Amino acid sequence: MEKSNYPQLDEGLDEKVIGFDGKIFTLKELRATANEYTAKAPIEERKSIKKKFEQIFNCDKDKIPDELLKEVYGGNIKTAEIWKPVPLYKTEKNGEAEYSVSNFGRIKHYGIIMKQGDKLGKEYGGYLVMKDYTRPAEYKFDSTTCVYRFVAAAFLPNYKKGMHVHHINNNGYDCRPENLILLEKDQHSLVHNFPIPELAEDPNYGK
């Protein structure tokens, strides 16, 4: 396991946290898995990873083709796509939730699938925001609200504002709930080997 440049961050790694579907991880295990994607990787590597996962998060079909799921996630994937309303948004229109999100990280606004892309100023940085602002007055977030927060709010039962959402494989393009886990700020620092700043929450998120 990689040692931290901050000795205090190599202590307490046996602490356990609960992920999606009750799966238990130690912080030590999370540190070991947080190595599949990095914003410091060569640009061609980052482009390749984004191109692969973009086939999923920007798929505009009603149902993601099974062969595409197998191509991106591997031949053993058996999970069907499940859509859930995002609980921070309560409005409905013609029976459609204001925002709904799937377990593959796709997002609908009143039933319309929204396009996603890299967070502003962070091309190939691995953190997705919604880019489809055809009717901006209807949206209750801005371009800094990350897609993983919508997934966490809908699929992780203990989600609350202010908690850190960690990507277990460190790939922010992979926003499946099983790849997300809720951490406190200090736990997140232990996992990543360096001090993590406080979250800058979007004040409009969830209003």
Results as ranks from 00 to 15, higher is better:
12 G>I: 14
132 D>L: 02
4 S>R: 10
160 K>F: 12
11 E>G: 10
115 K>L: 02
143 S>M: 11
37 Y>Q: 05
9 L>I: 13
69 L>D: 01
26 T>L: 07
164 H>N: 04
176 R>E: 07
68 L>I: 13
127 Y>Q: 03
25 F>V: 03
143 S>A: 11
73 Y>E: 07
200 A>G: 08
10 D>C: 11
120 L>N: 11
101 V>F: 02
110 Y>A: 01
57 F>W: 06
182 L>Q: 03
109 H>T: 04
116 Q>C: 05
104 F>V: 00
106 R>V: 05
39 A>N: 14
21 D>T: 09
133 Y>W: 15
99 Y>N: 00
75 G>P: 06
42 P>A: 12
158 N>F: 10
58 N>C: 02
157 P>E: 12
87 P>A: 11
70 K>N: 08
14 D>W: 10
179 N>H: 08
4 S>Y: 13
193 N>M: 13
46 R>I: 07
120 L>I: 11
177 P>T: 09
142 D>Q: 07
181 I>A: 07
91 T>W: 11
178 E>G: 08
124 Y>C: 07
18 I>D: 03
47 K>V: 13
134 T>L: 10
66 D>G: 04
118 D>W: 04
106 R>W: 00
133 Y>D: 01
7 P>I: 10
193 N>W: 09
163 M>Y: 10
150 F>D: 00
78 K>Y: 08
200 A>Y: 04
21 D>F: 12
182 L>D: 01
188 H>A: 06
15 E>V: 13
64 I>S: 04
